[in-house]
Design a protein around this nucleic acid. Sequence first.
DNA 1: TCCATCGGTCGGCATTGTCGAACACCTACC
DNA 2: GGTAGGTGTTCGACAATGCCGACCGATGGA
Lengths: 277, 277
Amino acid sequence: MFGIAERWYTTVGGQSKNGGTTGMARNIQSLERAAAMLRLLAGGERRLGLSDIASSLGLAKGTAHGILRTLQQEGFVEQEPASGRYQLGAELLRLGTTYLDVHELRARALVWTDDLARSSGESVYLGVFHQQGVLIVHHVFRPDDSRQVLEIGAMQPLHSTALGKVLSAYDPVAHSEALEADRKAFTDRTVCELDDFEHILDLTRARGYAADVEETWTGVASVSAPIHDRRRMPVGAVGITGAVERVCQDGELRPELIAAVRDCARAVSRDLGAGRF
Amino acid sequence: MFGIAERWYTTVGGQSKNGGTTGMARNIQSLERAAAMLRLLAGGERRLGLSDIASSLGLAKGTAHGILRTLQQEGFVEQEPASGRYQLGAELLRLGTTYLDVHELRARALVWTDDLARSSGESVYLGVFHQQGVLIVHHVFRPDDSRQVLEIGAMQPLHSTALGKVLSAYDPVAHSEALEADRKAFTDRTVCELDDFEHILDLTRARGYAADVEETWTGVASVSAPIHDRRRMPVGAVGITGAVERVCQDGELRPELIAAVRDCARAVSRDLGAGRF
DNA sequence: TCCATCGGTCGGCATTGTCGAACACCTACC
DNA sequence: GGTAGGTGTTCGACAATGCCGACCGATGGA
């Protein structure tokens, strides 16, 4: 309701050419609503009914139904025949996997992350900045026979994880996002204060890597380093994650692990074309 | 173009109430076009330009740009800053993973497929019917240390794989889909003729399982069995896949593997509520 | 330097999506 | 058994919305 009326005004005034930060051109309403529905279905744990969806988004039932019907036909949502409730559809999985296949950073990193997992003995994560957090695009299991769950497609917070700190330190958009958001305390070691957090980012830039010692999960520590493309722009981060007893020694991160992570990040960056000069 | 004009007539004449087989209600145009764009981007291997996309879908450049701009803001497509080309976006990966988390069949099957992989010594696949093929929603690696790639989110053909035959035999929609499509020959053992294929489906229903001995990939054989829900409707299929030398013996599938797969399928079905009757 | 093509934007028209009410259907509860 | 409240779905009319095609500015070969 309100968002619609507001958007109207933008057509009258000057369009400010390009906008420093955001384009702010008008977008297609039905698409925005459809995306909001998918996000709503992704957020709510269980299936949602039509009335819930319509009222949550402030839409008429008929409107919401039209969008859902189209999304269902395209395979983006499915409807449970019994209750008539809606949930996400299989086409999203297919397209999401295709995204991974095309992802250049991931493709270049595959072999290097395998090496890193073998040499470090810990699980390896590759993440990119997305929306308000870090999206895991690759995950190599720790090379032992323990039961592990694949975390590709999962999100991690920016302010407490090693991957998130690296991206916040090097990616300007991630930086402002991390500063604006409220930094939730996951453990008693999580850094939430603005000044402390910015100091950590400065430290990250100075060192060239970031750490997370029990700031997100108790007993778990990580190290991460940034990956740059051929234009020296930050495009992602690699890191290892493991039990704090293995990753740390005498209260400090084991130096050989830091070196291994940084070597891997440099290798991937070089593979992306950032190598020479 | 043509589809649009046709749709117009339905508003004038009688609306035929409900339509016998399909609802045939009108869908939202911009959403259909956006979905077609995503599918186009998923199909083409490399990134596509705006003009390519517009001409491929028969749209004006401005129209295509508006849809792409919105999709980009929502995270469904990304634009390479240098060339301006478009590719699929990270939000699809996030939503696709969320689809897996909510998937009830997959959740119930997790523990049973692990057992099956351990007892059979082969890799395990869990698939559901989707569009024109089988979508892999779970994949357990063969329990040795060999290098394997995760195939969750990949598609398999209906007519040549064990999973596809099971779904074609038990799911009516998959059945008609498999009969109508042209069955491509992947190896010289692929069954393409309509009569032969229908005979195989009859055999599958009679036996309660299906096989694929070098009909899709040379040197690879699979066995699969159907999973039913509490209404005895087929909802998916589990199967094992491995080198033909291990899976077969004296030209026949090893009986203990067939039994293990069928036990797993029955266990998951029972877990879904199909147990008592 | 020119020319072809790229992605992106803008104004005007009318198609298209939206709204709200009415419709079947089901379940639970008097 | 009826009723009341819930569901998802359809319909018709209005006008706001998204579509089209012409128009920019930049880019990159020839």
